[in-house]
Design a protein around this nucleic acid. Structure first.
Lengths: 182, 182
DNA sequence: CGGAACCGGAATTTCCGCTTCAGATTTGGG
DNA sequence: CCCAAATCTGAAGCGGAAATTCCGGTTCCG
């Protein structure tokens, strides 16, 4: 592969990650090409269609996160700390699009298993955190994972913004409301 | 206005509220007409375009909520309770679309002031709740209102679902993290 | 009854992103 | 340095989903 082609491929992936992260997976191919400083045609030379681009990025992010999650889960720390560590890792990844892909994950042969494994692992950590007494037990582990996804898999999410902080604190046992507040 | 026309108009508004609430403001005009058991033509007879339908519903919801908010704010209860009461009221309203409209609220001459007044009032309650020591003070009143909006102005939101509960509990002073968790 | 108001939904138009392709340009081996 | 192959460009064309129009048929109500 020619040097400029390789460079341009990288430019495209970078630009796509930025746009997908900032604004969700609706960004148009033309926007992506422009952000990369290239023509649309170039984009299509490297990725036959939008799907291919999405999948390449999503699969990369998921693999990275899954590996990180395995590492953290293997460490001798509380399950809650391990879970938060995973969230921190996830915050750096372009997961907003991953989430939208995972809705119809069946259609993506490579993505399905990745999403499934990751979900299972996180749910396991959440259940452990509840057993530790660190996380409120009036919601299911599945809901815990879902809420953390909301925190992280949001266009423009940052690990220290108000919503993420409030959700994490709200998951804590200390925060659990004693009676229906609403 | 003929009796059947009045009835159909109500059917349309009801169906639109349901669809907008359940799936956000992207619902197509055809879906709405179908849900109302009417033809698209009838829908367009009553509302010249999508915008008009959106605005009618949004303005109604905002007016209702604003009035309720004024009531609650005038009562001799804690500002935090008053704020939660407003959230409870909001949960029954089709606010998901209101939110998306309010992004470009300048374009809607009637909506702009409503949104502005409501925001000001809620922000005031939030600030009061912080002074009372009921709400964590490491975020701004604006952020408090923003987070409650996330809780309520979500397609499919319900006042007792996991995300709403966790956000409300997470806003409490008791929940505030003592150090950076992430 | 009569006709004005109203309805239905197929046909048309609009909108917008995807994809192609005929040059222009760049690369890298010779 | 040269040239063929590889790559790039971006305007034009495609496609389809959703919005909107239009008019023959239907329904209300005095």
């Amino acid at each position: 592969m020619r040097a400029d082609a390789r460079r341009n491929r990288a430019l495209i992936v970078d630009a796509a990650v930025d746009l997908f992260t900032a604004r969700g997976p609706e960004a148009s191919m033309e926007e992506i090409a422009q952000a990369a400083g290239l023509g649309v045609g170039t984009l299509y030379r490297h990725f036959p269609d939008r799907q291919a681009l999405l999948e390449e990025i999503a699969a990369g992010a998921l693999r990275t996160l899954l590996e990180a999650a395995r590492d953290h889960a293997a460490r001798p720390v509380s399950r809650w700390d391990a879970l938060l560590a995973c969230v921190r890792c996830g915050a750096d990844l372009p997961l907003a699009l991953t989430k939208s892909l995972s809705d119809g994950a069946e259609a993506h042969p490579e993505l399905g298993p990745l999403v499934h494994d990751l979900d299972a692992m996180l749910e396991d950590l959440a259940a452990g955190a509840q057993r530790e007494g660190a996380v409120r037990d009036d919601i299911t582990p599945r809901e815990v994972v879902g809420l953390l996804s909301v925190a992280v898999c949001r266009p423009g999410a940052r690990p220290d913004d108000a919503l993420t902080t409030v959700i994490i604190d709200g998951l804590g046992m200390r925060a659990a409301s004693r009676g229906a507040r609403i």
